[in-house]
Structures are given as C-alpha cells and as structure tokens.
Amino acid sequence: MADAIAAKGPTAPAPDAARVRHAKIVRDGFSRGFLMRPAAPGATSPADDPDAPLVAALRQGDERALAELIRRHGGRLRTLVLRFSGRRDEADDIVQETFVVAWKEAARWRPGAAPFAAFLTRVAINRAIDRARRARLWRWTGLAETAEPEDPAPGPEAAMIDAAETRAVLDDIRTLPDRQRAAILLAAEGDRGVAEIAATLGVSEGAAEQLLVRARRTLRTKLAARQDAGEGDQT
C-alpha cells in the first residue's frame, strides 16, 4: 500500500485543510463538466497540478508527455483496476483506454479544473465498472464462453499478497456490488475523503457514504464469519 500511495505523487497525503480544498475542487470540477470548466479564480492554480505542463504538451501531440503521464499514474491506476477486477489483461486494457481518453480530452482540459490525476481515476474506475456490468450481462445471456476468471494465473501480484487475511479481504471485495467495490477501493488508496469518492463515482456524498458503509459492513461480517470458522476449526 505504501508503494501505491507513494506512486500517487500528486495526491499524496496532505493536511486536512488542503485535503478539503482538493476534494471541493474535484467535486466542483466534476459537477460542472470536468474538463470544460474554466479556471476559477482562487480555486487552484496550474502550479497546484503537477500534471498541467504534461497535459499542455500532450495537447500538442507530444508522446513523451503521454509516456510521462503513464509513468506517473499508470501503476496506480493498474493497481486500482487490478484490485477491482483481478484480471491483469483487463487492467492493462483499461489503463490503455484511460490514457486514450486522456489524450483525446487533453485539448479540453483547463488548468484550475479538477486535477488531471482525479480525472484519470474517474475514467479508469468507471471503465472497470462498465466492463464488470458487460461481463455479467454476457454471462447472464449465456453467450460468454466461460465465467470470468479471477486471477487466472498466479502472477507477480499474487506474490505480493503477504497475508492470507489480506488476500481473503481482497477476494471479499471482489464479491461486492460494483459501486461498493469501487468506493471501498478508492477509500483504501488512503487519502480520499467521501467528497472525492463521490465525485469520482458521480454520486452524491450521501450516496458515497452509504456505499462505503455497506461495503465495510459486508466485509466486516465476512471477516467475522471467517474468524468464527477458524475458531471452530481449532476447537
């Protein structure tokens, strides 16, 4: 997790006041049309967003800027989506799609609107949710060739799961409804408040809080059941 947080760069833990301001900027940016919103005086300055120069370069078609944005955010997004879906191929596809969108939308992005990193997160998690819905639909219609595998092959990421409990919790997370899953994973990234999670998912703060409460309740219940089962096995 420390790696994931460290990889976030622009959204590293900040003091409370700054975090509140950041969440407000994200919320306002999303609610007003994330990219088109002109810079609001006093809201933030381009200097507040370390990605602004790269987005400006990307607007000119600079592929090196794209590579740098991917270097900054690709790992974080890959982690988020991989936690969500458990599929590396899908995670890479979604990261790729996210940066295709980033490139296409770069011309419309305005410094001073919501941070570009938050925009990337929103695109990635919503793509992941869309894919999960489509996969369920295909399975429901019986047209899917096979059920969606979870971690089809033990890859390097499996080796990083150093505790059985963490692994079990991750498995539990993947059984949650899409939006609950997305909300709890966004929260687990460490420094997101309810306002930013709500903005990322495009729901109200109250709805985001309910998603988090339900997700935590389910996860806690399952953890308790495993604990009880473990104690039962020992007796």
Binding site: G75, V95, E157, D162, E165, T166, V169
Partner: peptide, 27 residues
C-alpha cells in the same frame, strides 16, 4: 483488522518498460 487489511492490499507490480508499452498501445 479490516482497516489493516484494506491498508495492506497489494499493489500491482509495474514492470520495467510498462509505461513505454502502454504508451505504444495508446499511440
């Protein structure tokens, strides 16, 4: 315990050249 587990969720590894590979696919 749940909080600790959520805080310890594994991060995806980023292989050498990952950014370059994704950038090429995007291009």
């Amino acid at each position: 315990r749940l909080d600790r587990a959520l805080g310890a969720l594994p991060a995806a590894p980023v292989e050498l050249g990952y950014a370059t590979r994704i950038a090429a696919r995007v291009a």
